[in-house]
Design a protein around this nucleic acid. Sequence first.
RNA 1: GCCCAAGUGGCGGAAUGGUAGACGCAGGGGAUUCAAAAUCCCCCGCCGCAAGGCGUGCCGGUUCGAGUCCGGCCUUGGGUACCA
Length: 855
Amino acid sequence: MQRYDPALIEPKWQKVWDEALTFKAIRSADKPKYYVLEMFPYPSGRIHIGHVRNYTMGDVIARYKKQNGFNVLHPMGFDAFGMPAENAAMASGGHPKDWTYSNIDTMVEQMKPLGFGLDWSRMFATCDPEYYGQQQALFLDMLQAGLVYRKNAVVNWDPVDMTVLANEQVENGRGWRSGALVERKELTQWFFKISDFSGELLDALDSLDDWPAKVKLMQANWIGRSRGLQFAFSTIEAPEGFDRIECYTTRPDTLLGASFVGISPDHPLARALEEENAELAAFNADCRRMGTSEEELEKAEKRGFDTGLRVRHPFDTAWELPVYVANFILMDYGTGAIFGCPAHDARDHEFATKYGLPIVATFTPLEGEHDIQAAPFVPMKSEKVRYTRLVAGEEEQTGDAAVEAAVAFCEANGVGHGVTKYRLRDWGLSRQRYWGCPIPVVHCDTCGVVPEAKENLPVLLPYDEGGTPIDFSIPGNPLDRHPTWRDCTCPTCGAAARRETDTMDTFVDSSWYFARFTAPDADTPTVAEDAAYWMNVDQYIGGIEHAILHLLYSRFFARAMNITGHLPEQCREPFNALFTQGMVTHAIYKTEKDGRPVYHYPEEVELRDGGAFLADGRAVEIIPSAKMSKSKNNVVDPVAIIGQYGADTARWFVLSDSPPERDVEWTAAGAEAAHRHLARVWRIAAEVVAADAPASAEDEALLREMHKAIHDVTLGVESFGFNAAIAKLYGFTNTLSKSQAGSGAKRQAARVLAQLMSPMTPHLAEELWQMLGGEGLIANADWPKADPAMLVEDTVTLPIQVNGKRRGELTVPKDMAKEEIEKLVLAHEAVVRTLDGAAPKKLIVVPGRIVNVVA
RNA sequence: GCCCAAGUGGCGGAAUGGUAGACGCAGGGGAUUCAAAAUCCCCCGCCGCAAGGCGUGCCGGUUCGAGUCCGGCCUUGGGUACCA
């Protein structure tokens, strides 16, 4: 008998699929379409086992849908612009373009042996001029539609390298290469008006029924709609033009607990005051040295500076409050000014305690005491409290009610007005970097900022500088210092002009690639017929790390593309269903030498007696389930795995051991077991083919199990329960292996087993299908249907609980009357023993499920 | 700091509010074999001789019944707007 040999069968079937154009997506009106997309990879150099898991999940769905009669689109591409390519060029010479395309070639070569049912003819990389040129066209249309504008914004500036740094390139306030203290620098930059869509992007989340609730919640919090009061404090003897300080607050009901006013170091008033106050200027300068990330700002120690300026309370002009500049107040949220109510806000409480400001409660708990000096009292807004310093409304009311009453009261008394604000800020897309899509505008001395003419697109990235390749060892933006690239003529007046040297944020590239896949070669961004047929993405799959930015930006882009005529109305929400998968992790093997950690490759470690040991017998510490990292030597290379076990084993294992939304730990033993199982299925199929047993009484039992397997596996695949589907397949394999049924029934069962496995292990399945006499390719065969009549059981086993603890069980006909069951239960030995003659307090019979006797 | 998740045997995990531990790994026992590999069969949460008791990160609550729902913590992971 032949052995299961993936090295032989996998290339064979890949060639067959390829030549038959099995997975080529062709528009066809007579079939329903299904668009499956996994978030495309960054071309980092080699594929990662995490990619294998991600694309295997998509492939299972794609193959399953194809077998269910859908016309499937399942494409692949590369998110190819971005910093790592420039970093590589800086670190080891070479050119970002060469590095990127060489990585793409390698990764495609590594992906193909995995046997994914992809339409490779649609592949593109976002750094292809054919792609980014269309992106520039989109940008121009958005500019014309009023969805893009310029304003000033701050960046991390490295004063030594004279370069803009990404947040991740700032380490403890210093540039990662130069070590210089990072400064904030204000630059004029391009922005997308995503904030125009705040309300719509928030409200439309409700329509996304097949998105994970957690992702919708994260997006909702990120957009952050709040209802509050915008009002002003009048100042006392402030500099010219600062008679009022505009404030926004979500807690106007606590205005009578106001203790101070805080303004951002970037607030115009703070800037005006620092002209006359060197100490304040120094404080502000210090604040501005902080990084630009929200995390850093929030984690920094809360510091304030008393400006000496005072304001009047809006309800009582005799009540004066001090004005502080505070480092935790953001200029770009609200008005850049707040009032502090230490009694009911943790941060304000900390601030007031630090600077000796009064802490005055405006409400107390309905029951019990609260020492407001010791800790702030911050109940849920939905909770009722008792107001002791009431602005408006009932004395006892919820925070929500009090806020509404306070807004109404303030409006009636001319103190500000109620407003709805969003936390979501406009999307800054300018990057002062080379390896990105050039922003297609021209700066002309007479005409100002002018869009490039569409016929001049794409604005190509220059490869060299007057014949010599660009030198990436010099920090800064090569486009900016290029001798000739910036020189152009103004599309409006024809005079000499300069190109914009900023490129686009790489999130722009990934915000519409899914639409481009529907017509990847078109000389417009999209083609109406193709977009109308293939869009939306029916199932999108990717990591939870993209829950907010990528997905929100894509939702915005779909709207922008609809407005600019590149997508139909029904594509404003481009992803019908979303699934977020977990990572593949691997144990780290660690020893120590001279107090420093030493990480060992799995090959160097022997696992025995529940521990891990080196060849010289030394024990190794095992850190389980760690994120794979080159520096920890715990990366699993898919190429090696395929070489050792074949693609089907890798695909089977990454799906089998954990639910797809959770992390899965790669273990050599698990992969070994997966491989053993596939070999076993092969053996069983071969035995079934060779056998010649007559029909038997066992046939029906086997076929019943077969229909149950069809039912359970179908449900598993439909609901992303791949691990559960695989557990059922293990069970069904065991049943088939032990069954004494006749050869006819066994052959039928084995064919169904091959079909149920085919989305996960497509090569093995094709081979078994052929062995068992299946017609055509299993990839094209119809998915089996479970016969409902074969799923019905006629008896049911009920567990008997006494006081909620299991004490026995009872097998009864499925439709036995409740009264009959009660009689049997009360006669049950365990129940009689416990009740000891007493009558039960309660008897709960849940038909078909359980019985509980309350003694 | 803030937002969102996750936490169940030695390990990965299963379980519409209804028998906690499916399935797999590791481990133990047996069959087969001259022997081994491969394969096949059985056992396998903890304590206890047993009866039984205890068990889903911790503390409390709702319920006839909680891994599942509610409140409060702890730990780990993701995001935090220039990593992708």
